[in-house]
């Protein structure tokens, strides 16, 4: 099989349609740049958390006291699985002529993402019940800001997915809709990577200490 040149980072839809590719290249590239700016934002939240999680406890609850590791593990699995299902959606977008597979994988991804958000909100609720509110200490302030910023990103991704499902129905698989799906995929995978960092540096390190 002849290897097609990669026009832009990530999954290329195949270099059969030159005009579409001329249009898509800067769009996908620009989105990568946006993701980078977004990652800077997360990097700063991580740095803040790193400086406050130990020194900002103010005699209040410590990470071991408030983190529910099994729940965080289930959340991790949900989100990682949703990344796989979105990967399947991307492949369906490229190789399947009908939209049925695509919609199936997208809906599955949506359910997993919604499950993740549901679990996360439950975790927050349990913490708040225990008195571990963000107003309690610098550690909890930075924890809630970091994890909730990720959560808000995932929620935005879910809304985006709904809009795109609607657009698939209204417009079918036009170039615009395909490009949007590809960008959502990139966004979704990035959030996965961020979550892996949160699970590692916030939850695992927090409980290990």
């Amino acid at each position: 099989m002849k290897r097609q040149p990669l026009l832009h980072p990530g999954l290329n839809l195949g270099s059969t349609d030159e005009y579409s590719h001329d249009v898509s290249e800067p769009i996908i590239f620009g989105f990568w740049v946006f993701l980078m700016a977004d990652l800077v934002l997360f990097a700063i939240l991580f740095a803040t958390y790193a400086s406050m999680s130990v020194q900002g406890q103010a005699g209040g609850p410590t990470p071991i006291d408030v983190f529910d590791l099994p729940s965080a593990f289930i959340e991790t699995m949900l989100l990682l699985t949703s990344s796989i299902t979105f990967g399947m959606a991307s492949l369906a977008l490229k190789y399947k002529a009908d939209s049925l597979h695509l919609v199936f994988w997208l809906v599955l991804t949506f359910c997993l993402g919604a499950g993740f958000i549901g679990m996360e909100l439950r975790d927050f609720w349990v913490m708040i019940q225990q008195g571990a509110v963000p107003q309690r200490s610098g550690f909890l302030s930075s924890f809630f800001l970091l994890v909730a910023t990720h959560g808000i990103h995932v929620t935005a991704g879910l809304f985006w997915m709904l809009v795109l499902l609607l657009q698939l129905r209204v417009f079918g698989r036009t170039t615009e809709v395909k490009l949007r799906l590809m960008r959502l995929a990139l966004f979704w995978h990035m959030l996965d990577i961020v979550w892996v960092c949160i699970f590692t540096f916030v939850y695992l390190f927090g409980v290990a200490q």
């Binding site: 803040t48 400086s51 406050m52 020194q55 900002g56 406890q57 103010a58 209040g60 963000p134 107003q135 309690r136 200490s137 610098g138 550690f139 302030s141 930075s142 809630f144 800001l145």
Partner: peptide, 16 residues
């Protein structure tokens, strides 16, 4: 919202 990022008390740190 009464968070404590930069306050004097409860673990806030202005240097951040």
């Amino acid at each position: 919202a009464g968070f404590h990022f930069f306050t004097n008390d409860l673990g806030g740190n202005m240097m951040n």
